[in-house]
Every structure is written in structure tokens, then in C-alpha cells.
Design a protein around this nucleic acid. Structure first.
Lengths: 193, 193
DNA sequence: GTTCGTCGTCTCACTGGTGAGTATACTTTA
DNA sequence: TAAAGTATACTCACCAGTGAGACGACGAAC
């Protein structure tokens, strides 16, 4: 039955996401995914051709969810560039307070698979980061930034670095610092007024 | 013989470094390390108690090498904050041009082991990043930065993010952008003059 | 409206291979 | 000869992926 099928597949994807986010791809076995989803491994391989395909599926779902997340965080902000950046980094900081927070799953998987540029999960990470940057550039442009693409790229670097160092040091102060830096960069980037 | 012993141990560490840097820890087997070092696995386990201990040893060596690297890059720069930051990001960009470049090994291993804060390699990464930040703060303070610790932290975020995104997108433009951002941040941070 | 065959979905049990780590014995050198 | 260092050959657990078939729903035949 179609409904049953979709349900099982979603269960597998959810289980895989939880495990992949915590442990990365290499250290998670398909057996573990199956066990967490409450099905047998053979069922997993009925729905997915390979472990890599599961990873690809997980990241596709996450990409959609995260774009909604960003839109929800910043979509309603009505001020200028500074207000957008403040809102963005505040939300990032709040997100990082969650007890199960382990940084950006996309970045961590890209780091894990650094030597495999063609891996589906690497490609998904690249597409995701590119989409976020483009979305941010548009938001910043609408808010009156002078060189929105350039500013968006610098802000992306700050987000990426803040997540990485907050994780390494288990210190959210890096996100605060990145927020300050983002506003400094925007200030230099903006016609004085 | 002590010399022989040290020699074999160094060979193992070098082989392990090359494999770990490329593939991370999980995907590298002790068999592979032994093969690359030209010894048997039993010999590896004579010199190291476990795979984790090999990883820790590798990162300890890398930490020393990288601190020398940074000192070599920036130690001779005699200008102010802007000159130091320019030199730093120029060197980072040049480093990233190397064909076998795969970002910061410390960051990538920290990402891989995100769920294991007590792992020796995680601890080593944390110590390393902390040491670099402290060193940078000192350099920036000597060069006349107003709030060197704060600036160093922001620059660390930019370095971290630049490495991460340059790797994901295979685009060194992120390092250039980070360099510009660093100088913007420093400019805001500095008494006008 | 009951039997039958088919299809989508799922399980059990397995393969071939690799993982970390080790028991034991041989070699070299002081 | 005693100790350090290396090798052969192994244990046991786990891995990605598969072969063969069981279960239940559903339409067709009668």
C-alpha cells in the first residue's frame, strides 16, 4: 500500500538523520539505521539502493527544512541590514543552545567526506550552502545593502566559522563574536548615514 | 635500539597523518596505516596502545608544526594590524592552493568526532585552536590593536569559516572574502587615524 | 462470495570482506 | 643472555549488501 510505503520510508529517513547528525556517515551502519527505524536491513535496501542514497535523501529533506527555518528566522524582520544580521545571529545562538546541538550537519558531513568531492552528500552540502548564500544576498539586497553578494559571502564565512568554533570549544561566545563582526563588516560596507 | 624505535614510530606517525588528513579517522584502518608505514599492524600496536592514541600523537605533532607555520607566515611582518591580517590571509590562500589541500585537519576531525567531546583528538583540536587564538591575540596586541582578544576571536571565526566554505565549494574566493572582512572588522575595532 | 494468482512490502538468514586488537614466537643488538 | 622490536597468524565483532521466500491486500474468475 502506498501510504504504508511512504510511512516506512519516512521512518527510515528520520532514523538515518538522527544517527547521521550525531555520528556522521561513516560511523553509522545500515544495521543501526534499520534498528532505529524498527525495520530490518533488508527493508532499508528495499527503499534505498545504497547507504549513500540514504544520506542523499536525508540531506535533501534537511535542505528544505533549513531553508524554511532561515526564512522563519529572518523573513519577518522589517529593519535594515543591521537588524537582519542581529536577528540571524541571535537565532543561530539560540539554536546552538539546544542540548543535542552539534553544529551544521552539512558542514560536518562535508568535512568528513572532504576527499570525495563527487559524493552525493558532498554535492548536497554544496548546493545547500550555495542556496543559503543566495537567499541571504537577496534579503540583504532588499534591506538596502550596497554590495549584497559580497556581504552575504562574508556573513556566510562568519556563520560557518562561528558554528565550527562554537562546536570545538563548546562556547557560544564565538557566535556572539561572529554577530558583532558581521555588523562591523556591514557597517564598513554601507554608505554612512 | 632507541634510534630505530624512534624512526619506526615517526614513520607510523607520518603515514597516519597522511591518511587521517585525507580520510579522517573513522575511514582509516590501522591495517592501512601499517601498510603505508611499511610495518605490520603488530608493530603499530607495539608503539601505540590504540588507534585513538595514534590520532592523538599525530595531532600533537601537527600542532607544533602549525604553530611554527603561523609564526613563519606572520612573525616577520613589521606593520600594523592591517598588514598582519593581509599577510595572514594571503598565506592561507596560498596554502589552500596546494593540490592536496583539504582544509584544516583539526577542524575536520573535530567535526567528525562532534559527538565525542572527550576523544583525545577532539581535545587536541580544542587546545590547538585555543593556542592559535592566543598567539594571534598577542601578535595583534603588539601591533596596536585596541581589543586584541576580541579581534583575534573574530579573525579566528573568519579563518575557520573561510577554510570550511573554500573546501565545500572548492572556491578560494571565500578566503579572499574573509581577508576583506577581517580588515573591515579591524578597522571598526581600531581608533581612527 | 469464495478461491486464486499477482504485486508491493517486508523478514530471516546469509556472504564475502574488513574492522580493532592480540598470542606467540622469531630476530636483532647491546 | 636479556630486552627491544618485528612478524605470522589469529580472534571475534561488525560491515554493506543479497537470496529466497513469507505475509497481506486486491482484482479476476467462477
Amino acid at each position: 500500500m502506498t501510504i504504508q510505503r511512504a510511512d516506512t520510508k519516512q521512518k527510515i529517513l528520520r532514523a538515518a538523520y538522527e544517527l547521521f547528525y550525531r555520528q556522521g556517515i561513516s560511523r553509522v551502519s545500515v544495521d543501526a539505521i534499520a534498528a532505529r527505524a524498527g525495520v530490518t536491513k533488508r527493508t532499508v535496501y528495499y527503499h534505498f539502493a545504497s547507504k549513500d542514497e540514504i544520506a542523499g535523501g536525508v540531506l535533501d529533506v534537511q535542505h528544505l527544512l533549513l531553508m524554511q527555518q532561515f526564512e522563519g528566522w529572518v523573513g519577518g524582520v522589517s529593519g535594515g541590514v543591521t537588524e537582519i544580521l542581529s536577528a540571524l545571529f541571535d537565532k543561530l545562538e539560540a539554536w546552538s543552545e539546544r542540548p543535542d546541538w552539534l553544529g551544521s550537519g552539512f558542514s560536518r558531513i562535508a568535512a568528513e567526506l572532504a576527499d570525495m568531492p563527487g559524493h552525493p552528500a558532498r554535492q548536497a552540502a554544496k548546493r545547500h550552502k550555495g542556496a543559503v548564500e543566495a537567499w541571504l544576498a537577496e534579503r540583504l539586497g532588499d534591506a538596502g545593502a550596497m554590495a549584497p553578494e559580497q556581504l552575504a559571502r562574508q556573513v556566510m564565512v562568519l556563520i560557518e566559522g562561528a558554528m565550527g568554533l562554537a562546536l570545538i570549544h563548546n562556547d557560544r561566545g564565538y557566535i556572539t563574536a561572529a554577530g558583532h563582526a558581521a555588523r562591523s563588516v556591514a557597517q564598513v560596507n554601507t554608505p554612512t548615514g
